[in-house]
Amino acid sequence: MKRQIPVILVGMFGLFMIFQYFVPHESSEWVYEFLLDWTIIIGIFAMALGLWSLYRVSVEKIKTRKPAWGYNYLTLCGLFTMMFFGFTTQNGEAWGWFFPFLVSANLVLVLMIQASVNKGGRGLFLGLAGVFLVACVVIIVFDNTWGFHFETAQGLQSTMFRAFFDHILIPIFATMFSLLAFFIASAAYRAFRARNVMATLLLLAALIVMLRFHPFYGPLTPYIAPFMSKTSNWLMNVPNLAAQRAIIIGVGLGIVATALKVILGIERGYMGKG
């Protein structure tokens, strides 16, 4: 029962998705569209599981004093704060007690974790958390400059949600991405040191393609540059095309075979039984 039903479900829906491709009839399209929507919605429910896992692992790291454990408070506070921004908006121009509330709420979170992690001094942590919790409640009740909003995605448009997006997410994202320039250089160096036929071929092809960009051949430019650009174009259009085609056919077959194995129940590794 525990193992069979999932396998039957996979086979049933898998076969349906294969055969609906050949059935243009409206009713087949109708079910197809439903199923696609359903998978997306189930995925959103799964996000709750993900957040729970993130919370648990962070607290676990704090508990077991893993390397860099203290920073996990930052993860949890960042998580809580951003969620909070996603559901609140200002009612007017004034900020009121918005930021004091945010600080108190984060303190409640940190103190509660402390209380659950530390055996000694639990009473103190809980007491302090209680005090800040009361402060939060008082602010919610009396401060009208901001509020929780459940109208269509207002939180996503709120000033602080956008500010965090623009000034935390974007800069780190873009910088991580730009680090690739350095990493690609060190990777090239690594390839350069590896002395075998494969690495040499790879590096040579890479060099030819890279050199087409830079007409830094001085007075020789008119003689070398066109040759380089022609060779690199040839590399991109001929061997590249051939190898890509071979890989794509192979990958296509691999995907088709794996999907078929999954649907027929031959391959059950994804359910933990292979």
Binding site: A46, M47, G50
Partner: peptide, 21 residues
Amino acid sequence: PAYESVVMAVAQEVVKTAYYD
């Protein structure tokens, strides 16, 4: 480490069964 929650859920299932096996 998982990038997506559904992937996480499936991977947990996979690893759990592997340990049982």
